[in-house]
């Protein structure tokens, strides 16, 4: 008797879940933290575009969270039609689970990254600690806010950018980079689990002298709290961050949404999509749009993960796996 009722309850629940938005087509975009504002705008634009083109009402459901957590969700069965994550490794993990082919990154232009970004510093107005470049971060008394590279995609870009900087300095070597990055993390005061958490700590709670952040996240903070409180500093060298996107084959084939999901991602590459990306402070990959917004983005030397670290899988294994370089150089508690 009990079991029957229990199953009935589950079924009722499943029906509630299943019936939501059944009247029109819906897809789920599983994304990482700082893209909330971008996809809010983009989803509205795409819905309009699709209505005009195909006549269907399309609803795009959004889920945001730390990139790794989101990838885990998809692996666990979160029905994502498309994933738009912080770094390729997280989509690789989904591919490893068999939900999409291993060569997914070749399916769309620019390594499947319709927009790029880089890592910059956000400092208090007037830059009281005089932070101009990466080597200013290791000065004593500078307190840094950055998320935990073990859990945050953005934080891994931060870490790799610092590493690449040390490597590219005159006389740079693996050993020196290791030492330098270790010093940076000794100045880290709070290691939030996600990029958004770090931004909140720095901007809203007023803690720390410098936030290492996505460029788009830094500009967004400036927009939200006003340029009278914060400044952006672009270092002399940073990393080309490519947040990739992909259709999740297993899900779209089951749900019959491949066409829509594909069109959704392709629309990111259209001039409308590129404009929206630029307006939300992502660097567009389209040359024309990029030129139009060139004033917005400071020119600096950008290195890539593929060149310096031999791709994401390798970077992940060497630096961020359990017992990897980060675990070795991260000194408990830092230096106060």
């Amino acid at each position: 008797m009990k079991l029957k009722r229990f199953l009935a309850g589950l079924l009722a629940g499943a029906l509630v879940a299943g019936s939501a938005g059944a009247a029109d087509i819906s897809i789920l975009n599983v994304s990482y933290d700082p893209t909330r504002e971008l996809y809010q705008d983009f989803n509205a634009a795409f819905a309009k575009h699709w209505k005009a083109k195909a006549g269907d009402n399309v609803t795009i459901n959004q889920s945001h969270g730390g990139s790794g957590k989101q990838a885990r969700g998809v692996i666990e069965g979160l029905q994502a039609d498309v994933v738009t994550l912080a770094l390729a490794y997280d989509i690789d993990a989904i591919a490893d689970a068999g939900l999409l082919p291993a060569d997914w990154q070749k399916r769309l232009p620019h390594n499947s990254s319709p927009y790029t970004s880089t890592i910059v510093f956000l400092v208090r107005k007037g830059n009281p600690k005089g932070i101009k470049d990466w080597n200013d971060l290791v000065k004593p008394g500078v307190s840094i806010i950055t998320p935990n590279p073990k859990t945050s995609g953005g934080a891994r870009w931060n870490y790799l950018a610092a590493w690449a900087y040390a490597l590219e300095q005159p006389g740079g070597s693996e050993a020196k980079a290791r030492e330098f990055v270790g010093q940076v993390y000794r100045n880290v005061k709070i290691l939030d689990s996600g990029a958004r958490g770090s931004t909140t700590t720095f901007v809203e709670r007023g803690i720390g002298d410098v936030l290492i952040a996505w460029e788009n996240e830094a500009y967004l903070s400036l927009k939200e709290v006003g340029a009278d409180k914060l400044e952006i500093v672009t270092p002399s060298l940073s990393i080309l961050a490519e947040p990739p996107v992909a259709v999740v084959d297993k899900v779209v084939d089951k749900r019959g949404t491949r066409k829509l999901a594909q069109a959704y991602l392709e629309y990111l590459y259209s001039s409308d999509g590129q404009e929206l990306a630029a307006k939300n402070f992502y660097r567009p990959t389209d040359a024309q749009i990029a030129a139009k917004y060139s004033k917005q983005f400071v020119k600096t030397r950008l290195v890539t993960v593929d060149k310096v670290f031999g791709g994401w899988r390798n970077a992940q294994k060497v630096h961020f796996s359990d017992g990897g370089v980060f675990d070795q150089i991260y000194v408990p508690g830092g230096k106060r």
Binding site: L10, G13, G73, E76, L78
Partner: peptide, 15 residues
Amino acid sequence: QAHDIRIIFAVPGIV
């Protein structure tokens, strides 16, 4: 998955 029943990441899991 084979029966397309969703529990985790859907209402039944939350319940």
